[in-house]
């Protein structure tokens, strides 16, 4: 169990763009503490001089021609997926 405070959870929620209610914050405080407590076991491993692994293909630099391909998708089809759209634009609430 790693000690996580309510304000830690609120900070992480902000980083994650999650608007949580108080009940969720408290539940996550307990759960995250337990999960971090478990993964903390990695700190006992000596990894000095070990290269990190970021991917497990043998591939490097897969190139394609610099040609636009719309994958057979049209603008109207994609705009139709938006919760709110008007005049070929996606609408959102006022920003300022």
């Amino acid at each position: 169990m790693t000690d996580i405070s309510t304000s830690d959870v609120q900070h992480l929620a902000q980083l994650s763009s999650l608007q949580l209610d108080d009940h969720e914050v408290e539940a996550l405080r307990v759960d995250l503490g337990n999960i971090l407590g478990y993964i903390d076991q990695l700190s006992e491993l000596n990894t000095e001089g070990v290269e990190p692994t970021y991917q497990v293909t043998d591939l490097q630099n897969v190139w394609r021609d610099d040609v636009i391909d719309n994958y057979d998708l049209g603008r109207d089809e994609l705009l139709a997926l938006a919760p709110d759209a008007d005049s070929n634009q996606i609408k959102v609430p006022k920003v300022l």
């Binding site: 993964i39 990695l42 700190s43 491993l45 990894t47 070990v50 290269e51 990190p52 692994t53 970021y54």
Partner: peptide, 11 residues
């Protein structure tokens, strides 16, 4: 965490 985990992944 993240970097340590990716090194442990190599091991």
């Amino acid at each position: 965490y993240y970097l340590q985990a990716q090194k442990a992944r190599t091991l």
